[in-house]
Design a protein around this nucleic acid. Sequence first.
DNA 1: GCGAGGATTGTGAGCGGTCACAACACGGCC
DNA 2: GGCCGTGTTGTGACCGCTCACAATCCTCGC
Lengths: 356, 356
Amino acid sequence: MVVTGHTSSGGPAAPQGSQHKPASIRDVAQAAGVSYQTVSRVINDHPNVKEETRRRVEEAIESLGFRRNATAFALASGVTKTVTVLTSNTVLYGYAATLQGLEEAARAAGYSVGVRVLTPEDDLDRTIATAAAAGGGLVVIGFDRLGAAALDRVPSNVPCAAAVEAPPPGRTPPRPAVWVDDRTAARAATEYLLGLGHPTVHYVAIPASTGSRRSAAPRAEGWRQALIAAGVTPPPPTGKGWDAQAGYDAGRKLAGDPDVTAILCGNDDLALGVLRALHHAGRSVPGDVSVIGFDDAPHSQFITPALTTVRLDFQGLGRSAFGLLRGQLESDYQPPEPTLVGPQLVRRESTGSREA
Amino acid sequence: MVVTGHTSSGGPAAPQGSQHKPASIRDVAQAAGVSYQTVSRVINDHPNVKEETRRRVEEAIESLGFRRNATAFALASGVTKTVTVLTSNTVLYGYAATLQGLEEAARAAGYSVGVRVLTPEDDLDRTIATAAAAGGGLVVIGFDRLGAAALDRVPSNVPCAAAVEAPPPGRTPPRPAVWVDDRTAARAATEYLLGLGHPTVHYVAIPASTGSRRSAAPRAEGWRQALIAAGVTPPPPTGKGWDAQAGYDAGRKLAGDPDVTAILCGNDDLALGVLRALHHAGRSVPGDVSVIGFDDAPHSQFITPALTTVRLDFQGLGRSAFGLLRGQLESDYQPPEPTLVGPQLVRRESTGSREA
DNA sequence: GCGAGGATTGTGAGCGGTCACAACACGGCC
DNA sequence: GGCCGTGTTGTGACCGCTCACAATCCTCGC
């Protein structure tokens, strides 16, 4: 079945009813019988405007349907209420949710938000420069390698904040940033599994956001720490990718090993793939194997078995990142301490005690 | 387990290395010993500039790190290479994927993209005016009521294109728009189910994008037509929502009725919820009941049973919508005929013949 | 050797706002 | 009545770029 898409041109070629160009501040001034500066005062509500004058101007504004030209305002004032989000992905749950939270906060503050997707193909510096040229500030989503690289290259004179996977180890971060403590969360999840009686926990990793630094990926790190603290040698992590396919691939290998009874996954998509692989291999969840995801994507509670996972407050992350940026843009704005809901282990059906 | 989020301020309070304000066209002119207009000519590559002059100017541009100020350019030229997407959602798969396709096309064409989320709370007209004030054009994602309403209210003098659920019945649409023929797709999916031997097919609907118009929702319409053509009286559609929870709620009711053996869902999330409800009711899929989704979200093939669904080319939809807008913005750009991949029924594990 | 005409370059104005400052009005004070 | 301070309004310049047009330079043909 192939049915093609359709287009409609939108009626007869654009007779365009009212093609008047929009009223300017001077048009309003003329209509109200005042100078353009007075109009400017009214729209910025300066205190010193006689009440009656103000009323006249406001009427003129109303009747002409005047709206201040954002471009001209930006040029003259140097203020651009704009955030551009740099991200390598817009569809994956973590990214999309962060973006959503950010957009909401930005909208509430009267900012408009732009999105610019990062790809390995195009020149990072050029991309950043273009985004920065829009005025306003940047928020970089640095969950992955590409985003982290972009963050490193933002020129120091452009306002910028970031949502990252983890703080850069040791050195003070180059930029204001927010993150959730998923190292601790991963550790707790692993301990939970251990507490259930599983002799060890295997880890299906998401790609690291930093180079090959040892101390990198916090989720992996938390998992490792928990195992070591329990006196267990961490098995080699697997996984190479973000999506369910990658999870499936990793899961196939793990499923073949009868000693594998507990698997922690770097995100819910991976977990979904793992679940699938386990199913194909005839191993039951949670009977034979327990699986934990990460992120708590909306559908995770509806799959069968419902996925035990770590809920992360991506929306809050996006909101906070915006606040951090706003703090740089508006001198009199003091960003609130980020109030993220902490990571939370959501126990559902994919985990169970080891029936030894 | 509650672990809080973290922030880092980004080192000592912004010593801001090179706080020079960026070079302007006149700075470059001075450095190159020419007039600012010549610089303007170079950056717009006008033909009549002596080769040697051009070279000198280019060197000056390079050494000063000049980049044309986008705001000033927009103000002076009246050209804003900007698309603002109006959408009520950014996370649901159909929306996110459309946005993704659009962003990609826009980026390739040198446009920057803005996103503005529509909510029932804030004033539609004001929102639209704000978005339009950014210059550039609008693309409205009109899959739902809110989006469709927004589309209707975009003033006729602002360039705008739309991705919609279906063409407005009868009357020529107010705006250039793209859509996929999901009516036909729904019909084919229903016929497939009927062909499998199911006496009837139940439908779990997504919320309609138009008012209470009879001819509205194309997916529902296709389903209805297929049933009627087969001489079956369509059972009342259920469902009120977009997400898995809504699917689950609808699914519970359906699961209780032993006569229900085939269910078509308005999207994959609903299908997921339905699957879950069926599972809870102890009815097997596809043994007892067959389920078909709509959209083919990335995870649908990894759930168990893998979901039979209708794949829709949202990315193509986004790309085409952008093309349509671009056609209005650039007089010499002729948008290509949209080349969407047609809807396609992807048969997986959630459907099977009726074992009568 | 000189004028025509195209190639090159420069000047002025303006996009639609803002800022800084000057000008004018008014009332109260001595 | 003159002076001052405050409230109110208007003028000029400018943000960084584009447009339209004028000015200058060449090169060519006769």
